[in-house]
Amino acid sequence: MKTIRIILRNIRDAFKGVFRNFSLSFASISCITITLIVVAISMVLSENVDNFTLLVEKDVTIVAFIDNEADQDKIEEIKDKISMIDNVEKYEFKSKQVITEEMRDSSEVFDSIMKNWTDDENPIQNTYQVKVVDINKIKNVADEIKKIDGITVVKYGEGMVEQLISTFEFIHKICIGAVVALILVTAFLISNTIKITIGSRQREIGIMRLIGASNLNIRIPFIIEGLVLGLLGSIVPIIITIYGYTELYNRFGGHLFSNLIKLIKPVPFVYKTSLLLLVVGVLVGMFGSWRAVRKHLKI
């Protein structure tokens, strides 16, 4: 009861204090706001890139072409060998007849050329379509398959896929780096702002000490003030996230660059992100002031 009363009083006083020293508080709040906006953008980018990577990964297939000389036994043997390769998720035999059908269905030009081919004349090869577990090791799998006797050619959109993925991973890493750097800068700035606040409140702290406030009694108000700064600083970024992302999603119909990038659905994504922004803002505020109080009060 006592503790709750003390905390409630401190929250009230923190709001009062924030508005009393508004120019100072405004600097801290702006800092948190800017940081959180960048955090939000990074979150949106990296989550979507992650999502995209997943989609790409799902679609990447290794196509192993089988020598047309191979008989049924040989095809079975190849299957056994593929099944033994590490990192293979699943594989599927697609016969040249099926492929021919698909091609004839897809275009009239193909149809007119291919409809007169007999099985012997048909140059299209039987294939195994292989999917891998870890896209980063797709090249190893392709190399392994190539070594199998009876396989003529292996294709998997080489280079393109790998490049795409490493690019996205790079973007992802930059985002995380930027967020971490910004959070550190903000904590530092807040800690400086609160130091100034503490400086201007030395008198109050002196009196508190005099009348028997413990170190915790003295520290709590400032830490709660940091919390309030974080709370106020996260309002604008949260609004931007919720309305901005939803607007972006709706404007582009859920896709970016035609169908290449499928955006994450706004709900519940924006709420999760907002919650994270709130938590980051509050923690950064509290950490900043805790650091300032510890250094400044020598307690």
């Binding site: 009861m1 006592k2 503790t3 009363r5 003390i6 009083r9 009348i211 009694n217």
Partner: peptide
Amino acid sequence: AFALEIFGLP
């Protein structure tokens, strides 16, 4: 009142 508030009195 300041002198009492920090001790959490009602």
